[in-house]
Design a protein around this nucleic acid. Structure first.
Length: 587
DNA sequence: ATAGGGTTAG
């Protein structure tokens, strides 16, 4: 955005000066009211300026702009183009295309300024057919030498993800600038072809910060450790960095769970915005460090950074993981109070948070007040009901989803199956699994078989579970055997457990947890020698045991308990509580 | 022309 120059009074036309200086809609409207009373209203230059002000992204008032536009007797190209630009920028590309269609009937209005805007509208609308048609028109009318038009075309094909067409325009054009190269670079990255991007990057006659940032982002998105190193190399070598380059680099680390490296850069970056904070918060939340995520969120608020919809997601997710109901509630209230808009994604995250924190009431309230629901919203609800033991309600929710005609994906079946498994609804679960293949034509994946095995095994039907594993179309993975092994303990099936461990050894997935479980199974049925033999094996192989931990929220503080560590300030109190409960249950 | 967001198994 250009900085507003100091107010200069136009002697010949004082109103015009005010108009160009006005920033808020109210000011513009006032001036317009004055304009109507004067004869200046017919001056095309004044009217153009008025439309420009009314459609500016600072204070757009497209309805009013359209009103003014319709009262103009013979709108010129500039006015048309201003309307198209305004509609595209305020995300109403359909209207923009309408304007364009109207212009076409008087083709003298169409100039080289029209096409970039209308092509952009096609890109936003995903209007593939219209886009190609306009492409043809551009060629016919010979606007090839205009780099803005060419970039409009490349940009549009880039939005469609149509590399071939974008390349065709790019290669065939005589006029390329840095923007054209950068759009192509971005398209390569977007289609996952980092090698092609690197080739272009090397060939580019000149590069700017944006080109470098695209490459860093691209290498970061490949999500392999080696490529992140490559991203870092570029990052360290680029001549000038801006917030986007820093954020892209931090995100590259955060996405692969290298939170330490990410946080270090985050501390080093000279200037932060909401996006950089969100990246860091989400990085922690997605990699098992919800406490750190919440801490950062608090820090962000302290620094006076106003959170937006996206930046609260990480914090909400952290609350779900911690079961931190009070803090989750606080964030929810904070959003209401500070009028942060909540879209489907935020609402879904909130439903998930309330469900995971066991507050079904609040989850219900949001869920049923949602104007639109997606598969994901339903999934969150169904899984939430399931983990809270309301299997029947979960199935009812699924039925409601069917009635609303929401298309299903494979994950929703995973949700329904886990809900059944948690509630012990074996026949219902089996039924859903069958219907999944038959009625919905969704091919079950290993994860679905895992759920089915879990469902049967928990209910004690271990033979059937084994049957499923042996008859399924794909190779069973270690998670699947793990599920079965866990059920072996609950149902004391020693022989089957030994069989399962053999399979896990074959898969080289026999970690310490597996042997601990096996040893416990032996111990449960009194086979002490075997139990000891396995214990010794764990010790001899020097296998490290992952320490278990859990956390609860006490008065808004997150208290973490680590297995085996009983020296926590809360431990003594906890012990006495547990003991008094035990005494109560005995007497 | 470049950066951030929701769902699964313990």
């Amino acid at each position: 955005m250009k900085t507003q120059s100091a107010f200069k009074l136009n002697q010949k036309n004082p109103l015009l000066s005010f108009l160009q200086f006005s920033k808020t809609t109210q000011q513009i409207l006032q001036i317009h009211a004055q304009l109507i009373t004067t004869n200046l209203i017919t001056d095309p230059f004044i009217l153009s300026q008025l439309l420009l002000s009314l459609t500016s992204p600072n204070a757009p008032n497209l309805n009013y702009a359209e009103l003014v536009f319709n009262r103009i007797h013979q709108p010129n190209s500039f006015m048309h183009n201003t309307m198209i630009k305004g509609y595209t920028q305020s995300s109403n590309p359909g209207k923009a295309l309408n304007f364009y269609v109207n212009m076409r009937s008087e083709s003298h209005l169409l100039d080289n300024y029209t096409y970039p805007f209308v092509l952009k509208a096609c890109g936003v609308l995903m209007g593939l057919v219209e886009g190609r048609e306009i492409h043809g028109e551009v060629v016919k009318r010979g606007f090839w030498s205009d780099v803005f038009v060419v970039n409009g075309l490349i940009g549009m094909y880039s939005k469609f993800g149509d590399m071939a067409s974008a390349r065709f325009v790019f290669d065939g054009s005589e006029v390329k600038d840095l923007v054209s190269w950068n759009i192509m670079l971005g398209l390569c990255v977007q289609s996952g072809d980092i090698r092609a991007a690197q080739k272009m990057f090397d060939e580019m006659p000149e590069k700017n910060v944006i080109s470098w940032s695209i490459m860093i982002d691209g290498y970061g998105k490949v999500k392999k450790v080696g490529d992140v190193t490559k991203a870092r190399l570029l990052f360290d070598h680029m001549p000038i960095k801006d917030m986007v380059s820093w954020s892209s680099m931090i995100d590259a680390y955060a996405k692969i769970g290298k939170v330490v490296a990410a946080h270090q850069l985050f501390d080093e970056m000279p200037e932060k915005n909401v996006i950089s904070w969100s990246i860091m918060i989400d990085g922690y939340a997605q990699h098992g460090k919800p406490k750190e995520a919440l801490n950062l969120f608090r820090q962000m608020l302290c620094q006076g950074v106003r959170p937006d919809m996206v930046s609260v997601m990480g914090a909400i997710s952290a609350c779900s993981q911690l079961g931190a109901l009070d803090q989750g509630r606080w964030i929810h209230m904070y959003m209401k109070r500070t009028r942060i808009t909540m879209d489907i994604l935020v609402q879904t995250a909130l439903v998930d948070m309330y469900m995971k924190c066991g507050s079904l009431d609040e989850a219900h309230r949001i869920f049923y007040s949602m104007p639109k629901k997606t598969v994901v919203s339903y999934n969150v609800m169904i899984v939430g009901l399931g983990i809270n033991g309301f299997g029947e309600e979960a199935l009812e929710c699924f039925a409601q989803m069917e009635r609303e005609g929401i298309p299903k994906d494979d994950l929703i079946f995973l949700g329904v199956l886990t809900a059944c498994s948690h509630a012990g609804l074996v026949t219902e679960g089996f039924h859903i699994f069958e219907r999944m293949k038959k009625d919905y034509k969704v091919e079950p994946k290993v994860e679905h078989y895992n759920c089915l095995v879990d469902l049967l095994a928990r209910a004690g039907q271990l033979e059937q579970a084994l049957n499923v594993i042996e008859s399924m179309p794909m190779k069973p993975n270690s998670a699947l055997w793990g599920t079965l092994l866990l059920a072996c303990r609950t149902h004391r099936k020693v022989a089957l457990a030994e069989f399962v461990v053999e399979r896990l050894v074959e898969l080289k997935a026999d970690n310490s947890g597996v042997y601990v479980l096996l040893s416990n199974i032996y111990a449960d049925v009194g086979m002490w020698n075997d139990a000891l033999r396995i214990r010794k094996l764990i010790k001899d192989r020097n296998m490290k045991k992952e320490t278990g931990s859990s956390a609860i929220e006490v008065d808004g503080n997150i208290i973490e308990f680590v297995s085996g560590e009983m020296n926590h300030v809360w431990s003594q109190e906890l012990k006495s509580i547990v003991h008094s409960f035990l005494r109560m249950s005995i007497s």
